[in-house]
């Protein structure tokens, strides 16, 4: 039954793609939640995450090899390092702009994006780097359906990270504080919550998730370059908007939905994969027109 196999294959591909989108969209949505900033540098944080993961893997591969263990360590190192980079970006670039008009901080985010991109460009001379791993190309075959080990581990890792985040946000002190800060900062200050610290933790976690996605994407697709964060950043933004920006569950859902939509979109006859991006951004426009608050976002009702 080739039709069923095609269908299932599209689901598998969609889940892989969706995991990347979801991990990046989470950062977008969390950062938007606490400081109401659309952090357009977030895609580039993902790119930096890929390079740091690449560097970490070449460092540890001599000791533990470039297999699963090596990659796991690389992901961890990248998450921590880039997480702190996120905090530094927030402190240096965004913190001073918090009291400025909203547009200023948005422009600052674009500037940070350019700094990261061009920094990576000058360090790598714009060339693709081959992200070599010893993961192999094994997988499960069911007729014409093929599910690689890599895809399974990737989706599972993303799922674990998202469940951990959900737990953190709903059950822990800082998670609650994060939600409280996104609702009413001044009230939080009055309750003795160190708002700056909560914002820093949000950047730490958001950037760390993007770094995990970057490193895993590098390993999965086999190559990285300085411009890899641009398009996926915009798509993750789309995913966050679909889910309802500011909503964490929404970002996860939006990421997966977008991944699946893209994956199925390329299966439509006469619409080849070169139309994929048109498809994605058409969805963004449709959502913005018909349901600007997204699937799980709440519309703000002005009290008269």
């Amino acid at each position: 039954m080739p039709a069923l196999e095609t269908f299932l294959q599209a689901i598998v591909n969609g889940l892989v793609l969706g995991s990347f989108y979801a991990l990046i969209a989470l950062g977008y949505t969390m950062i938007f939640g606490v400081i109401k900033l659309l952090n357009f540098a977030h895609g580039d944080v993902y790119m930096v995450g890929a390079f740091v993961g690449f560097g970490a893997l070449s460092l540890v591969s001599g000791v533990v090899g470039a297999g699963w263990t090596g990659l796991a360590i690389a992901v961890l190192i990248s998450m921590i390092a880039v997480g702190f980079l996120g905090v530094v970006i927030q402190r240096v670039a965004y913190q001073p702009m918090l009291s400025a008009p909203r547009l200023s901080i948005l422009i600052t985010a674009l500037a940070v994006s350019l700094v990261l991109q061009n920094g990576a460009l000058s360090l790598t001379e714009g060339s693709y780097k081959a992200f070599r791993t010893d993961l192999g190309f094994g997988g499960f075959e069911f007729g014409r359906l093929f599910i690689s080990h890599q895809a399974i581990v990737l989706v599972a890792t993303a799922a674990v990270l998202m469940i951990a985040l959900e737990f953190f946000v709903s059950r822990t002190m800082y998670g609650r504080a994060m939600r409280a800060v996104s609702i009413d900062k001044d009230m939080c200050r009055l309750l003795g919550i160190n708002v700056n610290r909560v914002v820093a933790i949000t950047f730490l976690i958001g950037s760390g998730l993007a770094a995990a996605a970057g490193t895993m994407a590098g390993a999965y697709y086999g190559s990285i370059w300085y411009f890899m964060g641009f398009l996926i950043g915009l798509k993750a933004f789309t995913a966050a908007v679909i889910g309802g920006i500011g909503s964490i569950t929404g970002a996860m859902l939006g990421g997966l939905i977008l991944g699946l939509l893209e994956s199925f979109g390329t299966q439509i006859p006469f619409i080849g994969s070169e139309w994929k991006d048109v498809f994605t951004f058409a969805i963004l426009i449709l959502v913005l027109v018909f349901k600007p608050t997204g699937l799980l976002g709440k519309s703000e009702v002005e009290r008269m």
Partner: peptide
Amino acid sequence: EMSVMENVMAGMHCRTKAGAFGAV
């Protein structure tokens, strides 16, 4: 959008010691 319990717990934040890393 938070429960009554969570609202009250938010008030306790300043009296807690476990840092962010402990929470994670």
